[in-house]
Design a protein around this nucleic acid. Structure first.
Lengths: 211, 211
DNA sequence: CCCGATAGTTTCGATACGCTATCATCTTCC
DNA sequence: GGAAGATGATAGCGTATCGAAACTATCGGG
C-alpha cells in the first residue's frame, strides 16, 4: 500500500544538518548593503570574544579553518575600516594583537546574526539551554573530524585549575585568569571530556590527528 | 569584585547563533577536492527533497534566497555533470522539472554534510527530536523576517486536507497527494501556525514585511 | 491576435574568498 | 652567533558566487 519512496529516504539527522546550513545562510544573508562580508563579520565576532592571547591572526585562521594568509587579509580589511586596532605584543615581538575599537563594538550591534539570536531569545528557556549544549557538542565533534581547531572557554578546559568562585589559574598561560577572560574563547582550549567518546567508534586513530 | 566585561557581554543566544554559522561552515568545508561546491550541494539536496512540482529553477531560487539567474547557473552545472535530468512539464510549456539521475543519487551518498548528520545520529534520541524542532522553528521565523520563502512539508501545511492515514488532498495542487510527495518540500507550503506568533512581539508590523 | 505576466536562460561584470608562494621579523635552542 | 621554526604581511592568481539586464518561449486574458 505504501509506495516506495524511491527518490530519497529522509532521515531526521539529515534534515537537521541541512537546516543548520540553511539557517546559517539565511542568517548571514542579512548583511546586505554597505555592511561587512560574512568572513569579516566572523572575524569581528571572533576578536570580540577571544581572550587577549588569542586575538591574533594565527588564532583566527585556526578558528576559521583557513590559512594565515587569508586571515591576515580579512583582519587587514577590518583595521582599515577602523573596527580593529593593531597592537604589538610586548612578550613576543612577532605576535600582534588586535582589539576591537569603539567603532568595532558599535558595528557589532548591527550584526546581521542578531536576527537569529533574537529568535533564539524567544524560545522557551529550558529548550534553549539544551539546544546550545547540543550545538556545542556538535561543534566539538566536527572540529574533531576535520583536523580543525576546537575553541572553547576555561569553564571546561583541562588547563584550568581552582575551585569555583576562587580566582582561577590557567596552567597553559601560566597565570591567574582575569575574570573577563574566563568566558572568552581560547586557542589553547582542550575539553576535559575528549569531545566524542560516548557512543561510537573513532574513525581516525589518535596518531595523525594532531600532526 | 567582578571586573566589568567591557569588551562584549555574551548572551547564550548570541553564542548559539554563532555556533550555527560556525557549524555550517565546518560542515561544508569538507567538500574538498573534485567534489561539488556548496551551492551545488545545496541544489542537489533540494532537488532530491522537493516534490515534483517544486523541482524547478524558480522554486530553488526561492529556497536558496537567490535570483533565478544564479539558480539557473547552478542547476546547469549539475546537469552538465550528469547529476540532474532536465524534463519539460506537459502542463506548462514554460516550466521545466529537474530530477536526480542515478549518478545524482549516488553523489548524495558522498555529501560532506553527512559528517554532521552522523554526529547527530550519535545524540540521545529525545534531544535530537527537540533539536530538530527548534531548528525548524528558527528556520520558519528567519524566513519570515527576510521576505525569503519558507519551505515545508504537507504535514503542517494549510493546503492539506484529509484525515491522517487516508489519502490526503492538497487544495493547492488540486490533486490527491502521492505518498512520496507527502514528506517532500513544497514551494507552496504555508504553515498552519503562522510561524512566530507564540511568545513575543513582532518587530515589524505586517505592512512592509510582505512588499 | 495582442498584451502583460511568468519561467527559464544567458551574458556581463563585480566581488568575495581562498590558496600558494615569498618575504621580513622575531624567538628559541643549540 | 647561527640554524630552525614561528608569526605576520603581501602579491598573484584562480574560482565561486552573485546580481542586473537582456532575451526567448509560453500562458492567460481580453
Amino acid at each position: 500500500m505504501i509506495a516506495i519512496r524511491y527518490h530519497y529516504r529522509m532521515k531526521t539527522s539529515d534534515l537537521a544538518a541541512e537546516l543548520i546550513v540553511h539557517l546559517a545562510r539565511l542568517a548571514q544573508s542579512g548583511a546586505g548593503e554597505g555592511a561587512l562580508t560574512p568572513a569579516q563579520w566572523t572575524a569581528l565576532r571572533f576578536f570580540a570574544r577571544a581572550n587577549s592571547h588569542s586575538r591574533t591572526p594565527s588564532a583566527f585562521s585556526a578558528f576559521h579553518a583557513t590559512t594565515r594568509g587569508t586571515a591576515s587579509q580579512t583582519v587587514k580589511s577590518l583595521v582599515e575600516r577602523g573596527l580593529l586596532a593593531r597592537q604589538r605584543s610586548e612578550l613576543d615581538g612577532r605576535s600582534i594583537r588586535f582589539d576591537l575599537t569603539e567603532a568595532g563594538r558599535r558595528a557589532l550591534r548591527r550584526d546581521p546574526l542578531q536576527a537569529l539570536s533574537r529568535l533564539l531569545d524567544g524560545l522557551p528557556e529550558a529548550g534553549r539551554a539544551q539546544f546550545l549544549e547540543t550545538l556545542q557538542r556538535l561543534a566539538g565533534g566536527l572540529a574533531d573530524r576535520r583536523e580543525s581547531a576546537n575553541f572553547g572557554t576555561c569553564a571546561d578546559c583541562v588547563h584550568c585549575e581552582g575551585a569555583t568562585g576562587a580566582p582561577a589559574y590557567c596552567r597553559c598561560m601560566d597565570n591567574t585568569l582575569l575574570t573577563e577572560d574566563m568566558d572568552a574563547l581560547c586557542v589553547d582550549y582542550r575539553p576535559v571530556v575528549p569531545a566524542e567518546a560516548p557512543p561510537m567508534l573513532r574513525l581516525r586513530s589518535t596518531s595523525g590527528a594532531d600532526q
